[in-house]
Amino acid sequence: MARKRTKRRISAKRRRPLRNRYGRMHRSAFQLGITAAKEMLLQHEIIPFQLMDMNRRWNHWLKLMKYSVHPWSRYLQLNRSFFQGITHQSRIPAPHWLLLPTDQTVAAIVTAMNEETTIDQVLNQLKRMPLTEIIVVVNGSKDQTFHMVRKHADVVAVHFNEPLGHDVGRALGAKISRSDIMLFLDGDIPVKAEQLIPFIGALNGELDAALNEMTPYLNDFSQRDGVTIVKEMLNRVLGRPDLGANSLTAVPHALTRRAVETIGFENLAVPPKAQAIAIKKGLRIGPAAGVDVVASNRIRKTNVGIQNPVSELIIGDHVEALHYVFKEDGARMSYADEIRKRNAVFEVNV
């Protein structure tokens, strides 16, 4: 009994001020929900158009509250409070919606090739947010992927009979999109909408390119595969050791329109090259959040083993990225060797 009481007293003391501060924000968000529901005359259900309206009110409120986006867990809780307010007023259950931390238009670009088992989950997560566009590039699919995408209203489906090759779908999707922020995903890795929010949020003035933070999921160096090693090497030689092995090769990641146009659409098809261009041209590139996609990556014939075709492709992409930088900065980039007298070898006669 005595032990329990001491424990509780300490934790209550610590938490009280925090709870009060959060409490005020939560009450305010709840109130905002009530007001929004009243003014929007919500009836039987929330339609996407109304969700956009809510998103506008929500962002206006965030600005009024001078809300700092971090941590994202608090953002998600406030979002829940808002929808509790909506439900309280209108009696419409709205448990799964997620508003965006930005006023800008946001597109999700999904590439899919034979992903009929996962594409529905991917799209259902995306539809929880008021995205301006959802673009699915289906290529070389021999299964029902395209028909399943077509069943979703408000999803733009692009279809190619032949496989376009790795990452080409992303570049195409980016070219089709008209949005300010583009979120890139794969059709085989369903990522929860909650985990995507930070990528969108980071592009709201903080970054131009938001990468998936893979560092926490990496083993010791001696256990890593070649792809991880070349990713880290590219960042290191470009003067960004802080990026670790984070790469545009990995999904999810997000780019602003400015970033996409600076990099060039066709270069998005070779993600490491796009990354090198982004760093060289001074775009703000950095990690937004960590989503463990390694564990959920589908095992295919082509991505298993030490020297599998996909890893060779990605290593080749990195050679191509370095080749781009060599053209700009020369063979040694900024790593000169003036102290070395190479010509001494030719001067010596035997």
């Binding site: 090759g165 080409v168 066709e266 098809a269 060779e312 290593i315 080749g316 370095l322 080749h323």
Partner: peptide
Amino acid sequence: WLASHTNERGNFTDLGRDRKRV
């Protein structure tokens, strides 16, 4: 050196990327 004695990808596969599409 490798890139200039092979190709810009170091002779690695492109796995049939249809780059012209973009």
